[in-house]
Each structure stands twice: as structure tokens, then as C-alpha cells.
């Protein structure tokens, strides 16, 4: 065999190899592009569908009568005012209790704690808490709080406190870390004690983290159902704040579950779902706005 044919053969094989790799690269790239587009479309379509479906089914069923009355067996009509009130009581009670606990824990971790091991343990505990499913919270809440307080909103609120503790702690901690050390040193230099520094310099500067944490917690409390089912119960009676906390009551989510699954009242269920969706949107919006506001304030 002469050399020339050999060379052309090699050249050909190389060029086909290059071409096939070129082609397979092209196919790979377009495949990946296609799958990415497909998946983004799926994600958006699912979101839009759920929102659209709930709104279409639920909006026509929201009426003033539904929002402003209690359910009555006499007239057979359903009203969700007690559920709205209960949700509100739960929110207030939970936030009022969880705020000092969460902020206090965050202050301890960033301002006081010197023992690295202890910090590690506390942070690991917080991570563990945020991973525990709500049904287990519900069960433990039932064992601990409902046994001593009875099935009541207060038992539900205390269960929610444990669930939301890590959230408040984490957001506060993040914003405490951004308070410049110079602030603290300046205050110490002026002769202030530790508590005074925390009260007058550190805490006012971490307000953004506290607010963000509150918004996140409100969202989580509004959407929670499994943890409330066995701690706060199902009752639909309208109570005042303090009598409400000591008696059983269903939140909006629990009411949705009961109306949909146990009573087949899908119109009411969709009306509640619509309200919950609107609230979720408002919460997301306010979280974004608050984040932007504090970012701007900080950059000034």
C-alpha cells in the first residue's frame, strides 16, 4: 500500500470522527436546551394552573355572607368567620410567644456564646427542628400541650411556636451578623454595659431580620394544618381572643380540610383556598418589598 492512500484514509477517519463528535455535541446541546425549556414550562404551567383553577372555582363562592357569619345547622348555611378569627388568634398568640424566644436565642448565639461546641449544638437543634414534619409536631403537641391545656387554640399555638422557632432564630441571626462590630465597640467604649449595648445598638439594627422572620412565620402558620388537627381541633364557634385561645377551634386550613374531605362542601373549600392563595401572594409580596426596602436603607 502506498503512503498517499494511507494518509487520505487517516484523514478521512479523523474528519468523520470530528464530524460525529461535532454532531453529537450539537445534539447534546439542543437536547439540553429542549429539556430546560420543557421543565421551565412545566414548572410555570403547574403554578399557573393551580392558581387559575383555585381562583376560577373559588372566587364566585366568596360572598360577604360567607365571610361574616358562623355556620348554622338551622339554616344549613356555612360561614367561615369563626375560622378566620381562629386563624388570627393563632397568628397573634404564636408570634407573640415565638418572637422573644427566637430573637433571644439569636442574640445569645451571636452576642454571648463563646463555647463553639454549644453554638454547634444549638444550631444543629434548630436545623433538626426545621426538618421535622408537621404531623410529628401535631402528635407531640397533642401529647404535651393538649394533655395539659385541653384541645385548644393555645395548644395549637404552642405547637406552632416550636415549629417556627428555627425560622425566627435564623433570620434574626443573619441580620445580627451584619451589624458592624464597630457599633458594639463604640458603645462599649462609651462605657455601656453589655445589656445596654444589645438593647440600644444591636437590637434596633437587626429589625429587618426580625420582620422577615415574622413574615415567613406568618406564611407558615397560615398554611399549617397537620400540626393543628390534633392540637387545636375542629370547632367552628366564634369566640373572643382569650376564650378562643382556651377552646377548640379550626383554622382556615383545617376548615378547608374538613369541608372538602369530610363534608364534601367543595364550594366552601374552594372559597377558603382562594382566600389562602390571596394571603400567600400578599405575604410573598410583602417579603420581597421588605427585603428591598431594607437593602436600600442599608446601602444609603
Amino acid at each position: 500500500m502506498d503512503n498517499a492512500t494511507n494518509v487520505t484514509m487517516v484523514k478521512q477517519s479523523i474528519s468523520t470522527k470530528v464530524n460525529t463528535t461535532k454532531n453529537s455535541r450539537k445534539i447534546y446541546i439542543s437536547l439540553m436546551k429542549f429539556f430546560m425549556a420543557l421543565c421551565v414550562v412545566i414548572t410555570c404551567a403547574v403554578t399557573l394552573f393551580i392558581i387559575g383553577y383555585v381562583f376560577v372555582k373559588g372566587l364566585p363562592n366568596i360572598s360577604w355572607e360567607l365571610l361574616s357569619t358562623s355556620p348554622s345547622y338551622l339554616s344549613g348555611k356555612i360561614g367561615i368567620l369563626p375560622d378566620i378569627a381562629n386563624t388570627l388568634y393563632l397568628l397573634i398568640a404564636t408570634i407573640l410567644i415565638v418572637l422573644p424566644l427566637g430573637v433571644g436565642a439569636a442574640v445569645y448565639l451571636t452576642e454571648y456564646a463563646q463555647n463553639k461546641k454549644l453554638v454547634g449544638i444549638i444550631e444543629y437543634a434548630a436545623e433538626t427542628l426545621s426538618g421535622i414534619p408537621s404531623i410529628i409536631y401535631g402528635l407531640v403537641g397533642m401529647l404535651i400541650f393538649s394533655k395539659s391545656l385541653g384541645t385548644s387554640l393555645m395548644a395549637g399555638a404552642l405547637t406552632l411556636v416550636i415549629m417556627n422557632l428555627p425560622t425566627i432564630m435564623r433570620t434574626t441571626q443573619e441580620s445580627l451578623k451584619t451589624v458592624p462590630n464597630g457599633y458594639r465597640e463604640g458603645a462599649f467604649g462609651l462605657g455601656a454595659g453589655k445589656w445596654r449595648v444589645i438593647r440600644t445598638v444591636v437590637l434596633p439594627n437587626c429589625i429587618d431580620g426580625v420582620i422577615t422572620g415574622c413574615i415567613l412565620s406568618v406564611g407558615r402558620i397560615l398554611g399549617e394544618s397537620a400540626a393543628l388537627l390534633f392540637t387545636a381541633g375542629f370547632a367552628h364557634t366564634l369566640n373572643g381572643f382569650f376564650s378562643g385561645l382556651s377552646s377548640s377551634g379550626s383554622s382556615l386550613t383545617v376548615a378547608l380540610y374538613v369541608y372538602a374531605k369530610e363534608q364534601g362542601e367543595f364550594e366552601v373549600a374552594f372559597a377558603i383556598a382562594t382566600i389562602l392563595m390571596i394571603l400567600t401572594m400578599l405575604i410573598n409580596l410583602s417579603a420581597t418589598l421588605v427585603g428591598k426596602y431594607f437593602e436600600r436603607k442599608r446601602s444609603i
Binding site: V40, G223, A260, N284
Partner: peptide
């Protein structure tokens, strides 16, 4: 993603995360 598309899809994802599980259950059920 271009910036604007990213912002829109991201807020959709955040919304998806915020939907209460009973609402997922309700839509799934029906």
C-alpha cells in the same frame, strides 16, 4: 435565563412554595 424571565419564574416558584398543603390536596382531589 434573562433577568426578567428569571424574576417572573422565581416568584412563581416562591408562590408554589407558599401554597398550603391542603390546597394541593384539594386541587389533587378534584
Amino acid at each position: 435565563a434573562p433577568k426578567k424571565v428569571k424574576a417572573v419564574v422565581e416568584s412563581a416558584v416562591k408562590l408554589l412554595a407558599g401554597i398550603p398543603s391542603v390546597v394541593y390536596g384539594l386541587v389533587g382531589m378534584l
